[in-house]
């Protein structure tokens, strides 16, 4: 059975696209057929983060408007044959996304994939509500920072009201993905603690992704961070989060304080 996952946040720039690419690749690396769908019509970026920007022929809007078949618009990843991208259009306006069109595309994708990961645009407008509309599972991407937490709370409310599942009286499974977590600032008390965010939002935690230069490097190279360097700290966090998405239970680790080279060799200090 296909699972539809929306990666959403309300607030912009918190790491939705980075997370969509990383989780999508991590699931595909488990040999599960995965498609990542860019809902950010007009401002697509998932193609860049995935390194497929030169190969975009058709997009989601072309498929919705009947100008292209779904199979023609999907781009197979060059590194993983179980990973596909359905790009957003760069030129059309947001109204080109229609609820009926999105439903048709989702129904067809469900026939062919194990995982459909929808990269939501920021905000709470049409693009964001359509991205979450068919979700079984939501990954709420949040930074440990007041405005991000507030917007996540707003999005959680929408997930409980505006989705197909909510309208059928069912629940969307919601998970918190804390990103850009800076251990040094958390230790200094300058940043919301993990427990603070969890207490406020009260949805289960699926992972903590540290603030890391490896994310920028991966996007420079056009590779999901889990593929660019699977041993890096953010990659490990995303790989673990993907395992939890797939139903495994494993303990969550809070990224430790920044360690130097020796720290890296000798590993973690005992907790």
């Amino acid at each position: 059975m296909a699972k539809v996952v929306v990666v959403t946040s309300g607030k912009g720039g918190v790491g939705k696209t980075t997370s969509t690419a990383a989780l999508g690749a991590a699931l595909a690396q488990r040999n599960e057929k995965t498609v990542v769908v860019d809902f950010d019509v007009g401002l697509r970026n998932l193609d860049l983060v995935m390194g497929a920007e030169r190969r975009v022929v058709y997009d989601l809007v072309n498929v919705i408007q009947g100008d292209a078949k779904l199979t023609q618009a999907m781009i197979r990843d060059k590194r993983l044959e179980t990973l596909f991208l359905l790009p957003a259009s760069q030129t059309r306006d947001k109204d080109a996304l229609t609820p009926e069109g999105v439903e048709r595309v989702m129904d067809e994708l469900k026939k062919h994939f194990d995982w459909i990961i929808c990269d939501s645009p920021a905000g709470i407008e049409r693009g964001a509500t359509l991205a979450m509309r068919h979700a079984d599972v939501a990954v709420v991407v949040t930074n440990p920072e007041v405005s991000s937490v507030r917007d996540s709370d707003r999005i959680i409310g929408l997930l409980d009201a505006k989705t197909e599942r909510a309208e059928r009286g069912e629940r969307v499974e919601k998970h918190l993905l804390l990103t850009r977590y800076d251990a040094v600032r958390a230790e200094r008390g300058d940043m919301l603690k993990v427990d603070d965010v969890l207490e406020i939002l009260s949805i289960p935690l699926i992972g903590i992704v540290p603030e890391s230069a490896d994310v920028l490097k991966a996007s420079n190279l056009g590779a999901p961070v889990t593929l660019a360097d699977s041993r890096s700290a953010p990659a490990i966090a995303y790989l673990d989060a993907a395992r939890r998405l797939a139903g495994e239970t494993l303990p969550i680790t809070i990224p430790g304080e920044k360690r130097g080279f020796l720290g890296k060799i000798f590993g973690r200090r005992a907790a």
Partner: peptide, 9 residues
């Protein structure tokens, strides 16, 4: 249309 593949680089 299902038997048409268009690729671009």
């Amino acid at each position: 249309r299902d038997r048409v593949s268009v690729k671009m680089d």
